Computed example of a mutant assay.
Amino acid sequence: MTAPIETTHGQAEAQPEAILSGVERSEIQGRSLGQIAWMRFRRDKVAVAGGIVVVLLVLLAILAKPIEHIFGLDPTAFHQDLVDPVKVAPKGGWGGMSWDHPLGIDPQYGRDLLARIIEGSWVSMLVATGATILSNVIGTVLGVIAGYYGGWVDSLISRLMDTFLAFPLLLFAISISASLQDGAFGLNGLPLRISVLIFVIGFFNWPYMGRIVRGQTLSLREREFVEAARSMGARGPYILFKELLPNLVAPILVYSTLLIPTNILFEAALSFLGVGIAPPQASWGGMLNDAVDLFYADPQYMVVPGLAIFITVLAFNLLGDGLRDALDPRSK
Rank of each mutant, 00 (worst) to 15 (best):
A3T: 10
T7Q: 12
E17S: 08
I19S: 02
L20C: 00
G22F: 10
R25M: 04
R31W: 04
L33C: 00
G34Y: 01
M39G: 03
R40V: 13
D44F: 03
K45I: 04
A47M: 04
A47L: 05
V48Y: 00
I52L: 15
V54M: 02
L57S: 06
A61K: 04
P66G: 07
H69F: 04
H69I: 13
I70D: 02
G72K: 08
G72I: 07
F78V: 14
F78N: 14
D81T: 05
D81H: 06
D84K: 07
P85G: 06
A89G: 09
A89T: 15
P90N: 12
P90I: 13
G93R: 03
G95L: 11
D100P: 00
G104P: 04
I105R: 05
D106R: 12
Y109W: 11
G110F: 12
D112H: 07
D112R: 05
L113A: 09
R116A: 08
I117H: 03
I117E: 06
S121Q: 07
W122Q: 13
V123H: 11
L126T: 15
V127G: 09
A128G: 03
I133K: 01
I138P: 03
L142R: 01
I145G: 02
Y148G: 01
Y148K: 00
Y149N: 01
Y149P: 00
G150N: 01
W152L: 11
S158W: 00
S158T: 14
S158L: 04
S179D: 02
Q181E: 13
D182A: 12
F185A: 15
L187D: 10
L190Y: 12
L190S: 03
P191R: 09
S195A: 15
I198A: 06
V200K: 02
N205F: 09
N205Q: 12
Y208S: 09
Y208K: 02
I212K: 02
V213G: 03
S219D: 04
L220D: 03
R221F: 00
R223N: 14
R223W: 00
V226F: 04
A228R: 01
A228L: 08
A228P: 02
M232N: 11
G233P: 07
A234V: 11
A234S: 15
L240F: 06
L240P: 04
P246K: 06
Y255C: 00
S256A: 15
I260D: 01
P261H: 10
N263M: 14
I264P: 06
L265W: 08
F266K: 02
E267N: 08
A268I: 12
G276W: 12
A278E: 09
Q281L: 02
A282Y: 06
S283C: 10
S283T: 14
L288T: 13
A291G: 07
V292A: 13
L294N: 14
Y296V: 10
D298L: 06
P299R: 03
P299M: 09
Q300N: 14
Y301F: 15
L307K: 00
L307W: 02
A308G: 09
F310P: 03
T312W: 01
V313I: 11
A315G: 05
A315M: 10
G322T: 07
R324W: 11
D325A: 09
D325M: 09
L327R: 09
L327E: 12
K332A: 11
